[in-house]
Design a protein around this nucleic acid. Structure first.
Length: 505
RNA sequence: GCCGGUGUAGCUCAGUGGUUAGAGCACGCGGCUCAUAUCCGCGGAGUCCGGGGUUCAAGUCCCUGCACCGGCACCA
């Protein structure tokens, strides 16, 4: 029995999720739903990253205990994900005991392997920020936020022997070109590896907010070293006899933003190698969603609340836009103008209107009930079958945008078919009754197949369309193989209802 | 600075060395009336960033210039 374990990056909780964060979860959700539709046992993990000094500071600003603050933020995040129809199976928080167990185990294993040593981390430290600053981030030698000169601090902490794993990583990329997609990200990492690796510090001294380093409890595990481990701790890392870990590790796919590729394809595999664990099979670094050509930035206030966007036309139109209009792996752009355009074209005019006209004709000419057609439109049936092929190939290669576009070409084919066969003319001629049944059945069947293909992208809308087309099984029980095969039903009950997506002006 | 990417219709973008370079939107014309003023068909529209080169043949390959974007290790 095949299984698929996929994850997204866990999110800092110092502010509510923005559209870019939502983009990652939506595309991962499309992949998860596609796998389930394909009959693959799927586990989809998401979560929150809570051990950050920014989170600690934010909580204090609000006069809250950090954990109390994180509890509130968890509800905020879960609320947004629910509104967007994200079908995660598990949600991990890095403050959970199961994560602490995993991190502790991992650090101990790495230490046992001889890959942990004490050293000194040096850098510019801004007392007001309580954080180290990069040289390049300083403005005239001062902290850009507090406008004060940071102190040069030398802090004793613990290093991970990342450099030791350079050759093994080069070999990994060599043997598994598919390990990191898209290719542009892979090339960047290969160049980084060519330049050699330095060991990295994985602890911070004297921080109370974090997981204590097992080998030196006065230090905390640095936040991102802590964070990466969530993928494994969520399935029971830390207990060799945990059945869930044996079942689900390694992950099949980490979906992440392109900015954190290095952590996932260099540091994380090295950590796993050191600990003697299997490596994730694949990492996909998606691009950014820009706003009107501008990079989204919290500090510049150029962010967009996904709940606000979903509030306009619903979650499914937003999901469709992000999936279909942005080639997966590249950067994309969101503007309200373009969003409204795509809503009107794809949903109001094409898919929505198609559902309306088909249902209306079955209602008007056949009282909502279609008998067995004497024949089936072969051209349309082969178009459907060809579309399914294209769709599957695209989805399997993470070309989510092409898969969505393929489904909409089938919608176009149905509209074209109706224009050519003119059911309204057939309805006027009693001698053409059999032909009318065949035409209407063919149209309904095409809409049904298109809706099955759209289930991963627009789960709620596709389910509604299926119900209107007379599909009475629950969407979760449908399977891509059998349920996208052209059918000739002895009877179809089609329901007419209000417009799915009224045109926006 | 080094490395990489992008530049194609008014807009957003496709385009394996091989007829007359395509799609969607926008625009114009025609058709239909089942449908959410929707749908279907036809059409106008391009110095494929500039310059050189390879080739029987270049939007596509090579060199070069310009413009914009990204990456360059403790930024999830």
């Amino acid at each position: 029995m095949s299984r698929f374990y996929l994850t997204t990056a866990i999110d800092y909780v110092n502010s509510r999720p923005h559209l870019g964060t939502a983009y990652e979860k939506i595309t991962a959700d499309v992949i998860a739903r596609y796998k389930r539709l394909s009959g693959v046992t799927t586990r989809f993990l998401m979560g929150n990253d809570e051990h950050s000094q920014n989170v600690f500071r934010r909580a204090r600003e609000l006069g809250l205990e950090p954990l109390e603050y994180c509890n509130r933020m968890e509800q905020e995040f879960r609320g947004v994900w629910q509104a967007l129809g994200i079908s995660f199976d598990d949600f991990i928080r890095t403050t959970e005991p199961r994560h602490r167990v995993g991190v502790t185990w991992m650090v101990e294993r790495i230490a046992t392997a001889g890959d942990l040593y004490e050293g000194f981390y040096e850098g510019w430290y801004c007392v007001s920020c309580e954080a180290f600053k990069q040289e390049k981030d300083l403005v005239d030698g001062n902290c850009p936020i507090h406008r004060v000169r940071p102190e040069w601090i030398r802090e004793r902490n613990h290093f991970f022997r990342l450099s030791k794993y350079r050759d093994a990583l080069v070999s990994l990329f060599d043997r598994h070109p598919e390990f990191l997609l898209p290719d542009v990200r892979r090339n960047e990492i290969l160049r980084l590896l060519e330049g050699g690796l330095e060991d990295i510090s994985i602890s911070r001294a004297g921080q109370a907010w974090g997981i204590p380093l097992p080998t030196d409890p006065s230090s905390a595990v640095y936040v991102w070293f802590d964070a990466l481990i969530n993928y494994a701790s969520a399935v029971g890392l830390g207990d060799a006899h945990d059945a869930r870990f044996a079942e689900w590790w390694p992950a099949d796919l980490h979906v992440i933003g392109k900015d954190i590729t290095r952590f996932h394809t260099v540091v994380w595999p090295a950590m796993l190698m050191s600990a003697g664990l299997e490596l994730p099979r694949q990492v996909f670094g998606h691009g950014w969603v820009h706003l009107g050509g501008q990079k989204m930035s919290k500090s510049l206030g150029t962010t967009l609340d996904p709940a606000e966007v979903a509030g306009k036309f619903g979650a499914d139109p937003l999901r469709l836009y992000l999936v279909k209009e942005i080639p997966y792996g590249q950067d994309g752009d969101f503007t309200w103008e373009r969003y409204e355009e795509r809503y009107n074209v794809d949903l109001a005019n094409n898919l929505g209107n198609l559902v309306s006209r088909v249902a209306a004709m079955v209602d008007k000419y056949r009282g909502g009930r279609l008998g067995a057609p004497e024949s089936s439109p072969d051209a349309l049936a082969s178009k459907a079958s060809e579309t399914v092929q294209v769709y599957r190939r695209a989805m399997d290669g993470f070309a989510l945008h092409e898969a969505a576009a393929a489904a909409f070409r089938l919608v176009d084919a149905a509209n074209e078919f109706i224009a050519q066969t003119e059911p309204w003319a057939l309805a006027r001629d009693p001698a053409q009754a059999g032909r009318l049944d065949a035409v209407l059945s063919g149209a309904v069947e095409t809409v049904r197949i298109a809706a099955v293909l759209l289930l991963p992208v627009m789960p709620a809308a596709a389910a509604e369309i299926l119900a209107r087309m007379g599909e009475n099984r629950p969407p979760a029980s449908l399977r891509l193989d059998e349920d996208t095969t052209w059918r000739v039903e002895p009877e179809r009950v089609v329901s007419k209802a209000s417009a799915l997506w009224p045109r926006a002006e």
